[in-house]
Nucleic acid binder design. Structure first.
Lengths: 204, 204
DNA sequence: GTGATATGACTCTGGGGTAAGTTACCACCG
DNA sequence: CGGTGGTAACTTACCCCAGAGTCATATCAC
């Protein structure tokens, strides 16, 4: 029977995969795993569902591919930043600056790794754990430095502080999503002002 | 045909409703709306699915009932705390102390109002908005005070700082969920230590 | 022609929602 | 104080559909 839209459109697999991952990451990042449907992703990419399955195997495979691409991007950049000389609060600010620039066009990416509706078993669990650990280790490192300088090295305190730090990043990313007109630079300036307000920085 | 488990078990409606809401709030709060199934809630409460529907009408009705009960509890307590004299960081600490005591046995409750998989239309949207606004207004009030004292009253700055503050509360609640052995009092002491580490409090 | 790109039209399962029936409690009547 | 009808509390067994996943086929580049 006639299938008027079939046949290649001349888009190579790797390009198409990348395009699908763009759409899928946004859906997963904003709606969450459970609330995202593969059909919606396919429609968003302007293709049909079977092509998505042909390239990624399953919904979980698609999510995993998003995690791998996004996680590598995030973790690599954060590890690069962590090699700087800054410590304590300053290191945190450098990290934020890097994240703002990196994620300006995909602000939802951060949330992929904090989705409570994601499956907690199998390769997805592993992938989330892997990248969350890489990111978390850097956060932990920075927080440990800061806490040690302040004379506190209680492991639970460090753990809680790390969680708070990641929560701060999370809430800034969410706020940014809701304020699309804000540039990365404006975000950074804002963070510096907030910091100044908190610490009564005389330069404010 | 035989229905060996049918018939009343002598539990009055209001008691049963409350029990269902306990289970449902925990599921919704930990798994999120989309990833929670009514059957699982019913099983958790030791009853069958139709009873849940008989009492709450729909999955959304059930969620709304959770929101109403939890939201009233949260907002009332936070409004009570806000009547105190404390300002700035101190007010924040008082709020945390109150929340820790209030939520010691239902730490997931906070997350009901920050679930991205919840429907964004209809009465649920209204209910979330209502309580999030009540809570958010208090947070905004406290943050505005703090920022004004520091000489910054830019509305976007205040908005972002409020978001960060709510994010801090959120991350502390999440950390608490993952550390069930920690008491409310221990949490409060920990927060004071973290604050001291940040601000170099000489009393530390 | 061959293989990569692509799709229409299916199947099937999980979970929201329902119809109809069962049992226990209780108020009221005799 | 026993019967008895009404209602509240409950269940089994089902319907139904959205969405995950598949199959057979069609088109195009080379």
């Amino acid at each position: 029977m006639a299938r008027p839209n079939a046949g290649t459109k001349g888009v190579p697999r790797l390009d198409r995969e990348s395009q699908i991952l763009d759409v899928a990451s946004e859906h997963f990042g904003t709606q969450g795993f459970a609330a995202t449907s593969v059909a919606a992703v396919a429609a968003g990419a302007g293709i049909s569902k079977p092509l998505v399955y042909s390239y990624f195997g399953s919904k979980e495979g698609l999510y995993e591919a998003c995690l791998d691409r996004g996680g590598a991007l995030l973790a690599d950049e954060m590890e690069r930043i962590a090699q700087g000389e800054a410590v304590g609060i300053e290191r945190g600010m450098h990290t934020l600056a890097g994240l703002f620039v990196l994620l300006e066009d995909q602000r939802y990416l951060w949330r992929l790794f904090f989705d409570t509706t994601a499956p907690t078993t199998g390769p997805i669990r592993d992938s989330i754990t892997h990248y969350a650990d890489r990111i978390g280790r850097l956060a932990d490192e920075g927080v440990t430095e800061l806490m040690t300088l302040a004379g506190n090295s209680d492991p639970l305190d460090v753990s809680a502080m790390t969680s708070v730090w990641l929560g701060i990043v999370d809430s800034l990313m969410n706020w940014w999503v809701e304020h699309p007109d804000q540039t990365a630079d404006q975000m950074m300036q804002r963070c510096l002002r907030l910091l100044a307000a908190l610490f009564g920085d005389p330069s404010a």
